[in-house]
Design a protein around this nucleic acid. Sequence first.
DNA 1: GCCATGATATATCGAGGTGATATATCGATC
DNA 2: GATCGATATATCACCTCGATATATCATGGC
Lengths: 239, 239
Amino acid sequence: MIELAVLGLLTEQDLHGYELRKRLRARLGLFSDLSFGSLYPALGRLEAAGAVTAVEQHAHAPAHSPAGAMPLTGSLSGERAAESSRRQAPVGGRSRRARKVYRITDRGRELFESLLSGEGSGRSGERYFDLRLAFARHLSREARIRLLERRRAELVRQLDESPAQGTPPTGRLDAYARSVVEHSRQAARHDIVWLDGLLATERSAGAERSAAPNGNPAGIAVAGTPVLDSPSESEESTR
Amino acid sequence: MIELAVLGLLTEQDLHGYELRKRLRARLGLFSDLSFGSLYPALGRLEAAGAVTAVEQHAHAPAHSPAGAMPLTGSLSGERAAESSRRQAPVGGRSRRARKVYRITDRGRELFESLLSGEGSGRSGERYFDLRLAFARHLSREARIRLLERRRAELVRQLDESPAQGTPPTGRLDAYARSVVEHSRQAARHDIVWLDGLLATERSAGAERSAAPNGNPAGIAVAGTPVLDSPSESEESTR
DNA sequence: GCCATGATATATCGAGGTGATATATCGATC
DNA sequence: GATCGATATATCACCTCGATATATCATGGC
């Protein structure tokens, strides 16, 4: 599913591998190690599939589109370095380690759409959900709501299947194991509250002005002010 | 690191593959898919390394130790099934699909200890931490405290590296991506509070009675009553 | 009776992710 | 002027996952 992340970033701007990694890190928060050992092979697969095309980016490439559209290094110092290297470019050689800049194709955009919605055959799980949500602005509001509700249902299901403290299998665990289980349940409850906030925002935005084009719907809950849900036991929790 | 989980469970009781999976599920909460595709190869590796030995468990094995010590199926119906199949056992054949029951060896116990403490060369990350904590009763209090503090330091480091909302890279993200980042930061803060609770319990237990043998130290915080930390910005957060 | 379903149980395979490592270029720092 | 750290691409061995195949038995519907 690294493909989804790569395509999502390339939808917005041409980028090279190293930069893709940094952007993804910024976009996904603490998650997202994204080792090069998976990134470069993924780029290779996408290129082979015709979803992206590589544009060797080395010296003597002066006539580029106005600032902002060109592939940046992201860090200013890094970009300055590339700039200076571009000055004294030898003919065929690369003055700096050549950066392979990738651009998404139409086929890539199709693939992105289908991976993003995750409907049908897509994988689920927290990683995949976070990734999809991070690019959710490329989805229709209806698809976003379905995405959020699918994740919510999954969390509720896991909570119901997981034994609350007291039931036979959990009762036999020692305090450390119980703490791990209970903490994971707590985290799931927090996630549900978070999702409910996002869902409420989506729905109120949809009720207000259903004719809003495709722009960023006004006020998505960002921090999600983690209101703890009621201390009632999780059984039949909002199912 | 499935090895750690397998060895930890086998430390407590002889078990077969299918049962290992179920126990681990109960012990680790929502995490822990643990597919057979990784479990059985792991058992094979451990057997090859001499960390566990397999005892074919099929028919005509009547003289086993008193109830409770024998490897259970876990589900009563399953055990009853095995029982009934054991009655009419053909000579060399297996009346039921033979269960390979594994037992940990001395070498396995050594390996378990070194994997559990995770000191030196052990991997980190949330999965590994949860796994280690779930078996933390096999560690000394000092090792437990080091484990908790290593995890805490890792979370603090990630929070400090991750951009708070407002700083340049985050400011350019749309509301959905910001929400994902902020939610992951929130989760990390909750984890730190949880860890602080566990650390406080360890330390107070250590102060009260430092001569407690190896039994379960009195009252480990189980649910961790998720007190939100102050809304102050994360910069220099409790580091 | 008998057949479908589902739980128990082990095993293997392809696809793909991770962490480590190698290689190369350049600025900075001392 | 040498090392260090950031930039940048690439590959490797090992492992994990999800799917699938196989086999046994209980249960329950018809």
